[in-house]
């Protein structure tokens, strides 16, 4: 399934953000976002992860991460 993992911004350099999710850091472009973001905000990345697709509120991100943790623990495709 095309699941999206909310990723927390740990650093921003121009239009590039470093984000973290499930202990893994990666870089993503902020070029396609229509709103300002800051370190600590949560982003959903598009397919492949090269571009951030949208900013999500912290409560929605944490709820989604909790659900995704259950999916990971469940381990069944």
């Amino acid at each position: 399934m095309c699941m999206a993992v909310p990723s927390r911004i740990t650093a921003i350099d121009g239009f590039t953000a470093t984000v973290e999710a499930f202990g893994v850091e990666r870089q993503t472009s902020l070029m396609l976002l229509g709103e300002d973001v800051a370190v600590g905000d949560y982003l959903i990345l598009g397919a492949g992860g090269s571009f951030a697709a949208e900013k999500v509120p912290e409560d929605a991100a944490l709820e989604a991460l909790n659900y995704l943790s259950q999916v990971l623990a469940d381990g069944q495709a």
Partner: peptide, 12 residues
């Protein structure tokens, strides 16, 4: 339905 657009955001 509140969780769906965040978890399946590509076509949320």
């Amino acid at each position: 339905t509140q969780l769906l657009p965040t978890v399946f955001a590509l076509c949320g």
